[in-house]
Design a protein around this nucleic acid. Structure first.
Lengths: 345, 345
DNA sequence: CACCTGGGGTGAAACGATTTAACGCTGCCG
DNA sequence: CGGCAGCGTTAAATCGTTTCACCCCAGGTG
């Protein structure tokens, strides 16, 4: 079934030894042009394809990198993945994409698989804040880059965006617009980003000199649209509603928005919404969504570059911690509008 | 750098031969419990991880499958990928995700990489209608499943949704709702799905006994949000606008919708919009989008099952062509509103 | 007691590419 | 004419696993 033509067949066909064929493949300049052409011809005729397994076994350098994300269904990660993929494929590496779905078990299984594949390195957004599993990877000799998860661990690279600053940006904006009863719809505190964004929100309240009571946290089990819808329903059912909602990511925000709009709540007049990530769909939502933007593709590219650099020169590589700054993109969903605004119900 | 502990080290440590260690790993039932425990202990202490490259080299059976999609940024493919990933990881396979970005060159490069990796099989949505590159893969001995691209080629499996029927569903619906000047915003005819959906649209017009002039095709270079926005701007600039737009996918539709809504065009009163794929964001759009639904995860799962099945029993495997039926999901964006001010029939 | 049986284990030969040290050829110089 | 450098090529060793033929020994059988 598998391609049965090996380097040996090519050698026979071209009437040279296997070593020469190997040279043609890896150091074409050392072999005489005539021989080279002959070998190339044989490769073409036989449809020979290098066996990467054998190659890697001998040379010890793999050609794949692993990417473990929390949720492939989230366009944020998709955009990060695209950045990774671009950079990796330029360097001739394959990307093995794994989806941990926020489950430590799935994460562990995938990491195990990647270790067996002896990948060049692993880019991972860890499910748990506890980095022990990641460090074990590291100990097994693989380079690891933490994605979207800042750390000061000197043994690891990391690429992230300042989530605490992002949370602060969002809530400072809401307070400045005059919103007074803010609910933050947040993911489980197991997730690092969720905690950081909440801390930033709390910072904003404090720095504005407001009572801590203006900010309430509503936790949901996952950072996706369905959880957002659930949260929206809960908010609808309340006797006294908040006047603004800050969601830990855009998927939650879109879910909340959809439920509220359908129930006739006016956004932002009755209730403002701010999301996080600024995925492309945020701008195209029922009400264009204010959101905290992260340089998604850049995160992916940077992480891939780091892991490739590290595995090229493992010795002198010094681990870097890249932290990008988030940026608030204000759109209609959180703009205080004059009372005279036309209603679109 | 790479984990230096091999099966031989484990054998030494546990005072058994390498063969026995291999047995513990692969056929634990044939080795005596006492020995087994000793070996397991050694594996644990040494932190041994199997080297999949060596494994594959010897056994010939790889543990990865390749997935080549047109656009990872499109949630349709993300959902398909998730289906693939689920099934593959249940079977202990890694998924190597590649993004061809609708470019034949990128596709070729990725396919080459996958061939070198000797993946189990390749799930691919081909960029070109010409299947020659895919058939070459096949000839190199890899099982191939065409994704979202129907074929009758007896040497290949395929999993797809009936795009022609989908196009027909959409346009039949628009005609039934009384729309009379329909523009189909379509991708380049290089893309198979684009052509099929258009043919279905034409079918619908014909079957309804209408003049072919009610349907016009507006081609855009790619099936994404930006192209949709461009198309929306073009439509806006026209002196006589259509009263309905059918987009070849939801990303285009969201782009069109966004531009039109921002310009004050009422949807669906002034102009109806129908998309394709029914991605999750379609329901959460500015105006909830009517769309043609495809069983996205199921497509992925089915394809992965086929490729795994084929590589398990290559001999007696018979190639299947699975064709799912699309389903129209009607939402606000195309519902003729009860006789208010329009209704010019 | 000789013979068989079979569970439990061994050890060496693959797998296919890369790498390296050694080798043979050519042509130039002394 | 012999030696030697330089170049291209060869053959063999190697990577970590799996597989398979074979060995050893205890216990059962006739």
């Amino acid at each position: 079934m598998v391609s049965p033509v090996s380097i040996r067949d090519v050698a026979t066909r071209a009437k040279v030894s296997v070593g020469t064929v190997s040279n043609v493949l890896n150091r074409p300049e050392v072999v005489a042009p005539a021989t080279r052409d002959r070998v190339m011809g044989a490769i073409e005729e036989l449809g020979f394809v290098r066996n990467d397994a054998a190659r890697q076994l001998r040379s010890g350098t793999p050609r794949a990198i692993g990417l473990v994300v929390l949720d492939v269904g989230n366009p944020f990660f998709t955009d990060v993945a695209r950045g990774v993929e671009d950079t990796a494929s330029e360097a001739g590496h394959a990307v093995i994409l794994c989806n941990s779905d926020e489950s430590p078990q799935r994460e562990a299984r995938h990491v195990e698989l990647l270790a067996e594949q002896r990948v060049h390195g692993v880019l991972i957004t860890p499910v748990e804040t506890d980095l022990a599993p990641v460090r074990r990877l590291r100990d097994r000799g693989m380079s690891v880059v933490l994605l979207d998860h800042p750390t000061t661990d000197p043994d690891l690279c990391s690429v992230a965006v300042d989530d605490r600053a992002g949370g602060e940006l969002a809530v400072t904006h809401l307070l400045a617009e005059g919103y007074e009863r803010i609910v933050m719809v947040n993911g489980p505190s197991r997730i690092h980003q969720a905690r950081q964004r909440h801390e930033g929100a709390v910072d904003a309240v404090r720095k504005a000199g407001r009572d801590a009571g203006v900010l309430e946290e509503l936790k949901v089990p996952a950072l996706n649209v369905v959880s957002g819808q659930r949260a929206g329903e809960q908010l609808l059912a309340r006797s006294t509603r908040p006047d603004a909602v800050f969601c830990a990511n855009d998927l939650l925000a879109l879910g909340v928005l959809q439920v509220l709009v359908r129930a006739g709540v006016r956004v932002p007049e009755d209730l403002a919404i701010v999301g996080y990530d600024d995925i492309d769909f945020a701008a195209a939502a029922a009400v264009p969504l204010t959101s905290v933007r992260q340089p998604r593709q850049l995160i992916g590219r940077t992480a891939a570059e780091l892991v490739i650099a590290e595995s090229m020169t493992p010795a002198e590589h010094e681990h870097r911690h890249v932290l990008f700054a988030p940026e608030l993109v204000v759109r209609e969903s959180s703009r205080r509008v004059p009372r005279t605004r036309r209603r679109t119900r």
